[in-house]
């Protein structure tokens, strides 16, 4: 069996175990779509509250990862090693490194990409304001931008399964810096350009569709390759002693 087939088999095995999370994400996608359409219809992109951008960003970044089964998420496994316990189990089996690495990404994107597509479809279906603001073609470009963003930033979650040695204090500081940093960037963009990040991508989708598609896909591909390489290197460096 080819490595791709093996990786897909392993990923599907994991996806089947994530059914609870998938159902939650489907339910959540309706709630989020309603939120995004409601805020949009009230404001029509005038004075959109920053919380809209924050929710949009987190929907396409961290949400799918948050509903993965508990054992697939990072856990402190003795000392300062943070690793996905499920990854430890897989690593004990004679699964080729390539298959193991590929399966991490396939299983994550098998859940995250359909979730993101569902949110985008629901938004466009539920909101006449979005349809009026962006014709189908532009909305498709807008969707590609955000799906690519989901791949670029979401890759960090399957990549982190492999583990990291980091003290609890450092982990807390990094988390605060990470989420604080995102918020800070959003606030700066909001006040400097007087536009939210979502509005800017809508504008880009309408005005520069081709460059937007190319740049988004290129960045997603670079992100994916970077994180894949990162996992390859980390596997041989992390001690799975617990």
């Amino acid at each position: 069996m080819s490595e791709w087939k093996q990786a897909r088999w392993l990923a599907m095995f994991e996806v089947k175990a994530s059914l609870k999370g998938i159902i939650t994400l489907i339910a959540l996608s309706f709630g989020l779509a309603i939120f995004f359409t409601e805020v949009f219809s009230i404001t029509i992109m005038e004075d959109v509250p920053i919380v809209f951008d924050v929710f949009f960003l987190f929907t396409f970044w961290v949400l799918a990862a948050s509903f993965r089964p508990k054992e697939h998420q990072l856990k402190r496994m003795g000392g300062d090693i943070w690793v996905s316990p499920y990854f430890i189990m897989l690593n004990q089996l004679p699964v080729k490194k390539n298959v193991l690495v590929l399966s991490r990404f396939i299983s994550y994107f098998t859940i995250s990409i359909p979730f993101h597509i569902l949110v985008l479809i629901l938004i466009y279906t539920l909101s006449s304001e979005y349809r009026a603001y962006m014709p189908v073609g532009s909305y498709l470009v807008f969707s590609i931008i955000w799906l690519s963003f989901g791949v670029l930033c979401g890759s960090m979650f399957p990549a982190s399964d492999v583990g990291e040695k980091i003290s609890t204090l450092k982990a807390i500081v990094y988390s605060v810096l990470f989420y604080g940093g995102i918020l800070a960037v959003l606030i700066v963009i909001y006040y400097v350009f007087n536009k939210g990040i979502v509005e800017m991508t809508m504008y880009a989708a309408k005005e520069w569709p081709l460059p937007s598609i190319l740049i988004s896909i290129l960045l997603a591909a670079i992100g994916l390759l970077y994180y894949k390489g990162y996992v390859y290197k980390r596997i041989d460096k992390v001690d799975y002693l617990h």
């Binding site: 095995f13 175990a17 054992e71 496994m77 499920y86 189990m89 089996l93 080729k96 490194k97």
Partner: peptide, 28 residues
Amino acid sequence: EGWKKRIAYLPQTLVGCDSFNGNQLREL
């Protein structure tokens, strides 16, 4: 990594499989 297929290793504690049943683990 062919050598790994020739070894069956039982760790002291098996982690990461709480949400699977025996049948699923056998399949895996």
